[in-house]
Amino acid sequence: MNDIVRELLAKHGSLPVSVDQISDDADLYDAGLSSFASVQLMLALEEHFDVEFPEHLLNRKSFSSVEAIVAALAEITGDQQAA
């Protein structure tokens, strides 16, 4: 999942630096992720995983780092498997 998140981040994040240079726990907003790009990334993730981000995950924290995105996705896909 981490690889896919990184791939989509590279494609939709409009970051001024290469995604390879960003560690899993680095702050993506500090790295230059704009709120516009974060929504584009969110849409790409929804499309790829065929999921929808629930309201409680629609906040800056869910997209603050690669590992936060992975954790949010794990929660969503986990929820859906459980359901």
Binding site: S35, F36, V39, M42, L43, E46, F53, E55, L58
Partner: peptide, 12 residues
Amino acid sequence: NTSNMLLVNKPD
């Protein structure tokens, strides 16, 4: 900015 957020957010 709002229209961008409304691509994913549903008003309560």
